[in-house]
Computed example of a mutant assay.
Amino acid sequence: HSKPLTRNCWLYFAMLAKELKRPFRSQSVASFTAYFKRIHPDKPTPSVTTVYRYIDQGLLPLRNIDLPQKLRRRIKTTKHTHVRQNQKNLGLSIEKRPADVKQRLTFGNWEADLVKGVRKASEPALLTLTERKTRYEIVLKVPNYHAQTCLAAV
């Protein structure tokens, strides 16, 4: 599958290797590909992704060290696309707690959290209870993290 492409695009690969091995190179694989398409519109040209894959597979006389910068082909996004539609509303949100709880003015306001190791409901977990004012903490090992088990431990 890859052999015919290296044969069909021999001019591209020969010029790319020469360009990227120059001592003062200014081209990346992407910029060279655009340049090659401009000066040789009639010649077959592989995609930039294919070139990177060939370099990784050792099919070209280039290595990653010869690349001016190896680009991350998939750009990470910061937006979260997964929205939980069936999320249970288990009381007031932590952001809507009263001011005296936020400021840790009175004793007796506890926060609970569940620390899971293996993400299976049948595996043990740690239940932490933290008092807001004194920051006194109680840690309990629970055999599983089913709701009834956690309520019984509290």
Rank of each mutant, 00 (worst) to 15 (best):
M15K: 15
L11D: 07
T81E: 00
L67W: 06
A34H: 05
Y12K: 03
V154E: 03
S47H: 12
N64G: 07
H80R: 12
Q148S: 10
R22C: 09
P23R: 06
A17C: 12
V51A: 04
K76A: 15
R25K: 12
R72K: 15
G117H: 11
Y35S: 09
A14S: 14
L20F: 06
Q148G: 08
P143N: 13
S93T: 08
L114A: 12
I75C: 05
R97P: 03
S26L: 05
K70M: 10
L60G: 09
I55C: 04
R72Q: 15
K18D: 10
I94L: 12
R38G: 14
I94S: 07
V142F: 03
D100I: 13
A121Q: 15
T50L: 06
R132C: 05
R22S: 12
T6F: 03
P98V: 05
L129I: 11
K116E: 00
K102T: 13
R7Y: 02
D42Y: 12
D66F: 01
F24L: 01
F36G: 02
T77D: 09
L71R: 15
L127I: 07
V142K: 02
L62G: 03
F107L: 06
V154R: 04
S47V: 02
K21F: 06
R7M: 06
V29T: 07
P143G: 09
L60Y: 05
E19I: 11
R104D: 03
T149N: 01
K79E: 10
V48T: 14
R119E: 04
F13N: 01
W110C: 08
R84C: 09
K3W: 12
P124E: 07
S47N: 07
D42N: 15
D113T: 09
K88A: 10
P4F: 05
V48S: 09
K37G: 11
L20E: 04
V51E: 01
L71T: 14
F36M: 10
P61G: 04
P4Y: 02
F36H: 07
R7F: 01
I138T: 05
T130E: 06
T81V: 00
W10D: 13
D56N: 11
T149A: 02
T77M: 06
P68A: 02
L127P: 04
K120Q: 13
S28W: 03
I138R: 06
I75G: 12
V51L: 02
N64A: 02
T130D: 04
N64Y: 08
H1F: 13
A147C: 08
N89A: 13
D113L: 08
A99K: 13
W10H: 14
K37V: 05
S93P: 02
H80L: 10
E123C: 14
T106L: 03
R135Q: 14
L92T: 14
L62Y: 00
S122I: 09
Y54G: 01
A34E: 11
T77G: 06
L114H: 01
A34C: 00
S122W: 04
S93D: 12
Y136C: 13
V142T: 11
M15A: 15
I65S: 14
V51K: 01
P44C: 01
L67M: 07
